[in-house]
């Protein structure tokens, strides 16, 4: 009887469910899952693993996303049925609030310089536009303006980490991985008045000051936007502002270096 039992026990072998290896490897972050989700502007492709969201891109088809994931992340990526509900909620929240909040992003493949850039720009409030030079200055690397631009272009999680809030020094939005139109759309979604901004750029105005407190800001700074139209004064450069006796705003720090 006992040997009958042990014989039966020894034959209790069964295959593990097929999804096992995939789920295990995704949870450890050895590979990623990807799936589409809908957002305000159509379809957003998202990849993720146990460390967080690893890559994001808008678009209709999966192929460009897979190529993008291969270039920026390089791990194997497996199609999932859908973005898990909780993750989808967190991503939607991040997009609507303009801040990462509790959403985790997987930046393991990102080098120290790019990581520094991506961390710096997370402090730019939604609906505000800074410049590549500002980011470089803020990082204490004032000459690395071009490197900042290329680091932002290689941002694996655009929209979530707001590289769309950084433009060129003339105050325009500059280039974007998904086209300047998308960049303008994202900023407009966040409440930036693009028409007014275009007007300033066309006139060569880069900064806005208030005659009341003689402080100057980026025109998109929350403080600048609260200046009454009759009290506004526009400047084409830092020098012009400081020659007029204006000092830089401590909120948007238009001169670049942190106060």
């Amino acid at each position: 009887m006992t040997s009958l039992i042990t014989n039966q026990l020894e034959n209790l072998q069964t295959d593990a469910p097929p999804a096992t290896i995939e789920r295990v490897l995704v949870s450890t972050g050895v590979i990623d899952y990807f799936a589409p989700m809908s957002w305000k502007h159509g379809t957003l492709w998202v990849s993720w693993n146990g460390h967080g969201v690893s890559c994001v891109a808008p678009g209709d088809d999966p192929e460009p996303f897979i190529d993008r994931h291969a270039a920026k992340v390089g791990r194997h990526v497996a199609r999932s049925r859908g973005v898990p509900l909780r993750l989808r909620d967190l991503i939607s929240q991040t997009i609507s609030s303009g801040r990462l909040g509790t959403l985790r992003v997987d930046l393991r493949g990102v080098g120290p310089f790019q990581l520094d850039v991506l961390t710096t720009i997370q402090d730019i409030p939604p609906g505000e536009l800074r410049t590549y030079a500002w980011v470089a200055e803020h990082m204490g690397r004032p000459r690395a303006v071009r490197a900042v631009g290329s680091a932002l272009n290689r941002n694996p999680v655009p929209i979530l980490i707001p590289c769309h809030r950084v433009g060129t020094s003339d105050g325009s939005v500059g280039n974007y991985a998904f086209g300047a139109t998308m960049k303008r759309t994202l900023l407009a979604d966040e409440g930036l008045d693009m028409q007014t901004l275009d007007g300033y750029v066309a006139a060569g105005f880069r900064f806005m000051g208030s005659v009341n407190n003689t402080v100057y800001c980026f025109p998109s700074c929350v403080r600048a936007r609260s200046i009454h139209p009759t009290n506004r004064v526009m400047f084409k450069s830092h020098d012009a502002a400081s020659d007029a006796g204006y000092r830089p705003c401590t909120v948007c720090t238009p001169h670049g270096s942190p106060s």
Binding site: P17, P18, R23, S27, W48, N49, R81, L85
Partner: peptide, 26 residues
Amino acid sequence: TEVELLIGVQDPTESQPEPNLELDEW
């Protein structure tokens, strides 16, 4: 589970468990 916390709850249609009655009994 830990895995669910990290990557989300599994879609129930993803893995259809094949019943292994002998195993279930044991």
